[in-house]
Design a protein around this nucleic acid. Structure first.
Lengths: 208, 208
DNA sequence: CGCATTGTTGCGTGTTGAGCAACAAGCGTG
DNA sequence: CACGCTTGTTGCTCAACACGCAACAATGCG
């Protein structure tokens, strides 16, 4: 579950199949919701398009909403890849700025476009919002653990890692919200992320 | 019944009754979940304890989870009462610090205790987490609109109000998480809120 | 004091989430 | 390479749920 440092990422066939199934279900759910609207999609519909049984859909997600929101989502751990390699004397906020902006910038145009569409769908179907918020919470958790690990503190009891994780997550969220109604690509999103981090670094004084 | 309802305004009887019903249902839901665990509570149980029909529970909340999380919740607008009265030349972050910390400090010990219990319950029942995150999002929205209103910008397109709202919300969340496993009162929570805002103001440099 | 408005309730229905047991598809070991 | 162990998938079943609808009751207003 929580890959520490070891590199052995040779996944068995089983694991890969599971991941593929999960992605297929999520994509099917998202596409259907986009086509017919959230209320006119059932788990049976999703199952059918994903070539699995309805029961299997339930095995992967507690609800169709969770499945929809999971589509094309970036693993928080992937978003933070490279954080450990940053110089440890660099301020954490700056490391996060570099890594997160870089991660966003590496997205393909297609991936970015799907994420934009997903954000727009969530705005149209408010029932999805809690689940998206939970995803930001996962990102926040990943950041928090990464920061705590670097500074050698307990992620549960350390206030600073919590706060910086929340702030960094808010920076990403802000950038996404600003970007989602434009027609710009990943580069523009990355620039917005950097801009948000700049304001955080300067203590959120309005002139930024 | 069990709650000292904060509905002091001169609302019609109808409005007050609705608010009371909502609070009664939410409290019933929370108490039952605390007593028996989330999975062993049905909407019928909740309805029974709240002296309403199951159908009415559905009228107020889309799910029992939403009802549970709504218990003893502070209206975001109330949390921000007084923000408009702060001097307009004061940095927004400082105004928020004062208002939010003050709001938290004014809570009764009982209210604080119930909120703590709710946080603990949410940790035990992860299915509640998305809904709590959505509540933080509501707080964030309220902050965003308040800040945008003061500076006269469009809350939808202005990046700064989004970011500061997210950061302030993260400050509150951080404080609550740090506080929830202690046995301290509202004053201690308020102090933690102020501490988080201090770190935000100083640009999140670790020495804070 | 009626009439319009609006909250509450019961009913019916399509959907959901999950436990269970059977089956099949990886996987490890000898 | 074949056997058994582990684990993902499926169909079945059922309690619970969300919600539209229409009747009813309480409130608010003129």
């Amino acid at each position: 579950m929580s890959d520490a440092a070891p590199a052995p990422e040779e996944l068995g066939l089983r694991e890969r199949k599971k991941i593929l199934t999960r992605e297929t279900i999520a994509s099917a759910a998202f596409e259907l919701a986009q086509e017919h609207g959230l209320d006119d999609v059932t788990v049976s519909d999703i199952a059918e398009r994903a070539f699995v049984s309805p029961r299997t859909v339930s095995n992967y997600f507690h609800s169709k909403e969770a499945a929809i929101v999971a589509a094309d989502e970036n693993e928080p751990m992937e978003m933070l890849a490279g954080f450990e390699d940053r110089p440890h004397d660099e301020p954490a906020l700056q490391s996060l700025r570099t890594v997160l902006a870089g991660s966003v910038r590496s997205w393909s145009d297609e991936h970015a476009q799907r994420l934009r569409a997903k954000e727009q769908l969530i705005d149209r179907a408010p029932a999805l919002l809690p689940h998206r918020m939970a995803q930001y919470d996962e990102l926040e958790d990943a950041i928090r653990h990464a920061v705590a690990k670097r500074t050698g503190v307990d992620p549960e009891t350390d206030a600073f890692s919590r706060l910086i994780a929340g702030a960094a997550s808010a920076a990403v969220k802000t950038a996404v919200r600003m970007w989602m109604n434009s027609d710009a690509g990943p580069d523009a999103l990355a620039a917005l992320v950097e801009q948000s981090f700049d304001e955080l670094e300067s203590g959120l004084h309005h002139d930024a």
